[in-house]
C-alpha cells in the first residue's frame, strides 16, 4: 500500500471524525429547533422525535402573540413575548453603546498617552474580568436600590456593562498599539485638538476592533440572565432570557413555549455569526471572558 493512499485514507477519516464532532456540538441546538415546532402533545409524550413529527407554529404563536394554543397545559402565558424581544434588544443595544462610550476613549488613553496610572489600571481591568457576576449582583442590587435604578433599563445596562467594559478596553488597547504614532503626531502638527485627533483619526482606523467589541457587548447584553433576574425583580418589562425562565415554571416546564422562546433568543447570535464571523473569531482569540 503506497503512502499516498494511506494519506488519503487519513484525510477522509479526519473528515468523518470532524463530522461526528460537529454533529455532537450542534445536536443540542438542532434539538431545540426541532422541538420548537412540535405540538405540546408531542413534547409531553415519552418519545423524542429526531425529525419534525407534526410540525406546527403554535409555540411561536404562543410566544410571540401570547395566545395559548388550547391544549392540556395548565401554564398560563403572561402577555406576549414581543415586548420581551424588544426589551432584550434595548438592553443589548444599551450595553453595546455604554461599552463603546467608555472603552474606546479609555483604550486610546491607555495605549497612546503616557499616564502614571496605566499599569495599575490595566492590572485592575485584568482582575475585573475575574470577578464572578453573582458577587457583583448582590451588592449592585443594593446599590441600585439606593440610587433608584432597580427595575429600570439604565440599571440593568450598567450591570451588563461589567461583562464587556474590561474586555472591550483590553481588546481595543491591544489594537490601538498597532496604530503608528506618526498619524496622531502629524494631526497635532496640523493643529488638530486632542479630541479631533481621536474622533477623526483614531476612531475611523479602529473600526474593525470597535465592531468586535460592539458585537461582544451586544451578545453579552442580549444573553444576560443574572442581572436581569436580580435587578428587574418585579419590573413591568423583562428580557427574553427571563421570559424563558418563567416558562420553565416551578414544577412543570411549558416546553413548547420554552423551546420557541429559546430559538427566538438564538436569532441575534445566529445573525451575527453569519454577518460578523470574522469579528467574532477575532474577539474569541483575544481572550473573551463571558458570563
Amino acid at each position: 500500500m503506497s503512502g499516498r493512499h494511506k494519506k488519503t485514507a487519513v484525510r477522509w477519516l479526519s473528515t468523518l471524525v470532524a463530522f461526528v464532532a460537529v454533529a455532537i456540538m450542534l445536536f443540542p441546538i438542532y434539538s431545540i429547533i426541532v422541538a420548537s415546532f412540535e405540538s405540546t402533545v408531542t413534547l409531553f409524550s415519552t418519545k423524542f422525535h429526531f425529525f419534525p413529527y407534526h410540525p406546527t407554529l403554535a409555540n411561536y404563536q404562543t410566544v410571540l402573540l401570547g395566545t395559548q394554543s388550547g391544549t392540556a397545559t395548565s401554564v398560563t402565558i403572561s402577555g406576549n413575548q414581543l415586548g420581551h424581544v424588544l426589551t432584550s434588544f434595548e438592553i443589548a443595544l444599551g450595553t453595546a453603546l455604554l461599552t463603546l462610550a467608555i472603552s474606546v476613549p479609555a483604550a486610546y488613553a491607555l495605549a497612546k498617552y503616557r499616564l502614571r496610572v496605566t499599569v495599575l489600571f490595566v492590572g485592575a481591568l485584568l482582575l475585573a474580568q475575574i470577578v464572578p457576576s453573582i458577587v457583583l449582583a448582590t451588592s449592585l442590587f443594593a446599590i441600585l436600590l439606593k440610587t433608584h435604578l432597580v427595575n429600570t433599563l439604565p440599571g440593568v445596562i450598567i450591570c451588563d456593562g461589567t461583562y464587556a467594559v474590561p474586555f472591550g478596553i483590553l481588546v481595543l488597547r491591544a489594537f490601538l498599539f498597532g496604530l503608528p504614532n506618526e498619524l496622531m503626531h502629524s494631526a497635532r502638527v496640523d493643529g488638530a485638538s486632542e479630541w479631533q485627533t481621536f474622533r477623526m483619526i483614531v476612531i475611523p482606523l479602529a473600526r474593525s476592533a470597535i465592531v468586535t467589541v460592539a458585537v461582544f457587548a451586544f451578545l453579552a447584553g442580549w444573553g444576560d440572565f443574572i442581572f436581569a433576574l436580580t435587578t428587574l425583580n418585579g419590573a413591568s418589562f423583562e428580557p427574553i432570557t427571563l421570559g424563558i425562565y418563567s416558562f420553565l415554571g416551578n414544577y412543570q416546564a411549558n416546553w413548547g413555549a420554552v423551546m420557541a422562546a429559546g430559538v427566538v433568543a438564538l436569532v441575534p447570535a445566529a445573525v451575527l455569526l453569519v454577518i460578523a464571523q470574522r469579528y467574532i473569531a477575532t474577539g474569541l482569540t483575544a481572550g473573551a471572558v463571558k458570563g
Binding site: 487519513v10 484525510r11 477522509w12 479526519s14 473528515t15 470532524a18 463530522f19 464532532a21 460537529v22 456540538m25 450542534l26 443540542p28 441546538i29 434539538s31 431545540i32 422541538a35 451578545l219 442580549w222 444573553g223 440572565f225 432570557t241 424563558i244 425562565y245 420553565l248 416546564a253 416546553w255 420554552v258 423551546m259 429559546g262 433568543a265 438564538l266 447570535a269 445566529a270 451575527l272 455569526l273 464571523q277 467574532i280 473569531a281 474569541l284 463571558k290 458570563g291
Partner: peptide, 28 residues
C-alpha cells in the same frame, strides 16, 4: 482534510448561545 474550515467555524457555535438557553436545552 476536506471540510476542515466549515467544521472549525461550526464548532464555535455553542459559544454564542445564551447560557440560560443552553441550560434549558440540556434540561430537555
Amino acid at each position: 482534510f476536506p471540510g476542515r474550515t466549515v467544521a472549525r467555524s461550526l464548532v464555535i457555535v455553542p459559544w454564542l448561545v445564551p447560557l440560560i438557553v443552553t441550560g434549558v436545552i440540556f434540561r430537555f
